[in-house]
């Protein structure tokens, strides 16, 4: 292929050497992914930061520089600030979710019949279409449109037991509305946590259980002194991820209540501001705030889990085997 004689190597010939191949293969293989990355990730991100200091409509006609006004509005206008409060419901919900998931996962790791069935049923909601889930729960809490009527599935169950029907989506009771939505969120996502925890628990050496059995430990003691310490890193990782999840809630409340009855979330508000009110500048400021929160949380996560990062992946592989 290549001659030792330097003069005889033309550019075309050089491209055939491995050195040359490296160059053109790199360019050929990376050009599309990099172009897409720049166009649909970094360019919008830069725009976002720039626009967030402007008063700007959808088409960017005649934008006006307003400094930090947009940011000030997010943190002072109660209409916007309430969305932070609402994400606390989801944060509390995901704590409950972790506890239940851990309980169910440890049950599924004990000697139980029809494990596969239980695991499958509990996991399936995670795979379901979000719009389908939301409509199912519209029906669960109400009898449909308008979403304020009462005879949903849940009330039918309550009435079977002789209880009074409850108006779940009561506009004057935002606490209840948000709790219902958090319930839907737990219903949908808990299966995933269960599977994660099962993977983690199964990666614990069986010797530890045997030893504790010999010592006469009961299931609670086994959980408290063997299982929990072993899976603690994953539990804390999940709790940190829950912060990200809580601030990014979107789909379920958007479809079920449309963000009404005091159930708006930060992302719903961002999208509304951008595409309904057409205040792109303000929406960009909100997106930047979300970005900053997520970066801070991620840095915390990276700081605490530098070594534990790879653990969950390994466990999941074990689970598959």
């Amino acid at each position: 292929m290549t001659t030792k004689d330097g003069k005889n190597i033309s550019f075309r010939q050089w491209l055939r050497t491995y050195e040359g191949q490296k160059l053109y293969v790199s360019i050929l293989f990376l050009i599309i992914p990099l172009a897409l990355l720049l166009l649909f990730t970094f360019l919008p991100a830069v725009n976002m930061i720039g626009y967030s200091f402007q008063e700007r409509d959808q088409f960017g006609v005649d934008p006006k520089f307003v400094g930090f006004d947009n940011y000030r509005k997010i943190f002072s206008d109660p209409d916007y600030f309430i969305t932070f409060k609402n994400s606390l419901y989801y944060l509390a919900g995901s704590f409950v979710q972790q506890i239940i998931a851990l309980l169910v996962a440890s049950i599924l790791c004990s000697k139980i019949r029809a494990k596969g069935f239980f695991k499958g049923v509990l996991f399936f909601p995670y795979l379901m279409n979000g719009v389908a889930v939301s409509i199912i729960f519209l029906r669960f809490f109400t009898k449909g449109n308008p979403p304020l009527t009462q005879e949903g599935t849940l009330n039918s169950v309550l009435m079977l037991f002789g209880a009074e029907p409850v108006r779940w989506f009561d506009p004057s009771n935002t606490f209840l509305v948000n709790c219902c939505l958090v319930f839907v969120s737990i219903w949908r996502y808990i299966g995933f946590d269960i599977i994660m925890y099962i993977g983690a628990i199964q990666s614990i050496s069986p010797d530890l259980y045997e030893a504790s059995d010999l010592d006469g430990a009961n299931p609670w003691q086994q959980f408290r002194y063997i299982v929990f310490p072993c899976i603690k890193p994953i539990v804390s990782l999940q709790l940190i991820l829950a912060v990200k999840g809580a601030i990014s809630v979107f789909e379920i409340p958007y479809i079920i209540t449309g963000g009404n009855y005091g159930s708006s979330t930060f992302v719903i508000k961002t999208i509304e501001t951008a595409f309904k009110k057409k205040q792109v500048g303000l929406a960009c400021a909100m997106a930047v705030v979300l970005l900053v929160i997520i970066i801070v949380v991620t840095l915390i996560q990276k700081y605490f889990f530098r070594e534990g990062d790879e653990k969950p992946a390994k466990n999941s592989k074990k689970e598959a085997a």
């Binding site: 725009n47 959808q58 992302v267």
Partner: peptide, 19 residues
């Protein structure tokens, strides 16, 4: 590429939409 994973997808759509 790793930096890009940080960006929250849904709210990015505000500016992606314009592109």
């Amino acid at each position: 590429f790793l930096l890009a994973t940080l960006l929250p997808n849904i709210s990015m759509q505000v500016t992606v939409f314009q592109i």
